[in-house]
Simulated assay, not measured.
Amino acid sequence: MMMDEEEEISVVQDMAYDYSGKRLATVSIDREICIWNKKDDWQRTYQWKAHEGPLFGVSWAHPCFGNILATGSYDKRVIIWEEPEASSSYSSSSMDKSTKGWTALAHLVDARDEVRQVQFAPPHLGLLLASGSADGYVRIYTCIDEADLHQWPLLTELDMDSPVVGMSWNPSVDSIPLIVVASHKDCRVWSMDNDTRRWTDWHLFRTSESDTADLSAVAWAPHVGRSFERIALGCEDGSILLFQFPRIQQGNKTNGHEMQPICRLNHGNERIVRLQWNMVGSILASSASDRMVRLWKALPQDGTRWNCFDVVHLNE
């Protein structure tokens, strides 16, 4: 990714690819939002400042809903942005790197502390947005009328008791609505009952009693062709915990059940910053403060033993 030499490089706090993988949104500590388009190289086509404090999170909605972004900030707000369809096809030479084409449609102000995470739900669940805050709550918003993107009523608040450090929707289309949320010490799976529309706490994941490291990241794997779920938890000490459990179906509630990890991976000694699965949930990528990305996969015929098969050094 190239930047103009005279431009200052700001500290990027989060980034998100759109569905096609040809556009990238980044948010930074200096309140800057940037949109990058992939041509021969990555080119910045939009650049503007928003919110009243550092930005911590960004997420694209599925393109079936249009060109929609959500950003979360230290100022305790989430802003919903929309870009008209015609603007997304402009070349970088025709853009002035401003907010031209992007409009703030809604300001969500329910959080009582900084918003650290924002994530749109998979499209089969509708236009849902989850925001995780340092006040210990995940708030789920819904856009009831997709023709009016200015209205985002609060659907529910999920109480995690301590600051939220990560969350991940279950991406599978044949599952009930599920989201996994990590705070510093606990990780819980929450589910929405399709009949009552109420959210309940179904599963509790814990590290062993001897572990003292706080949690720092979480990712839910797609279960393409599998009869079980996988969730990866990242920790402040550089370890990664993998959980594997039967698929959660409506009616088989196991509220309060504690799950133990099937294996522990060692990325290094630095804080795990992000975890990401591939499209079929067979390869896990982990990035940490050591500026390295490690790729992991299970040994053949043994889902409880994983090895690192590649390492990318980001400073090379």
Rank of each mutant, 00 (worst) to 15 (best):
V218E: 06
L158Q: 09
L284A: 04
L158A: 06
K297N: 07
H203T: 05
R197C: 12
K185N: 04
R271A: 02
M95D: 00
F56I: 08
H313Q: 14
S227F: 06
L154D: 11
R264E: 15
D186T: 13
R31H: 10
L215I: 13
Q250T: 07
N37T: 00
H107I: 10
D148V: 03
G225Q: 02
F205D: 10
R77D: 14
L178I: 09
A134H: 14
D195T: 05
K38M: 14
A182W: 03
Y19P: 05
G132C: 03
D161A: 05
P300L: 05
A232N: 12
G281R: 06
H184M: 05
W220P: 02
E209K: 12
L129P: 07
I9F: 08
Y17K: 04
A86K: 10
P300E: 05
Q276P: 02
M292K: 09
L241Q: 15
R139H: 04
G126M: 11
E209Q: 05
R271Y: 00
D41R: 01
L129I: 12
I140Y: 02
A298Q: 13
P63W: 04
C143A: 08
V115T: 06
S20W: 05
V173L: 03
F243Y: 15
I9R: 15
S59K: 00
C308L: 01
C64A: 11
I248F: 08
A16H: 13
W277N: 05
D302L: 02
W42T: 13
N67D: 12
Y74A: 08
D159P: 01
I240S: 06
R271S: 12
W190L: 02
M192R: 15
Q151K: 14
E52A: 14
D4Y: 08
C235K: 10
D211C: 02
A70W: 13
S87R: 08
T304H: 06
E146H: 15
S88Q: 06
S287Y: 02
N67H: 14
A50M: 14
Q276T: 09
L108T: 11
P153H: 03
R139D: 01
H223V: 08
L284P: 09
A213H: 07
D145T: 09
L105H: 00
G234I: 03
N266A: 10
S133H: 10
A232D: 12
D302P: 00
R206S: 10
D186I: 10
C187P: 02
V118P: 01
A147E: 02
S133E: 07
V180F: 07
K22T: 13
P222V: 01
I144G: 12
G281D: 13
S227Y: 04
L55K: 07
D145G: 07
R188C: 10
K100R: 11
N315Y: 01
V58Y: 01
P246E: 10
N67S: 10
E6F: 03
D4S: 10
W102E: 11
D135G: 13
A288L: 04
M1T: 14
L314Q: 09
I35Q: 07
K38C: 07
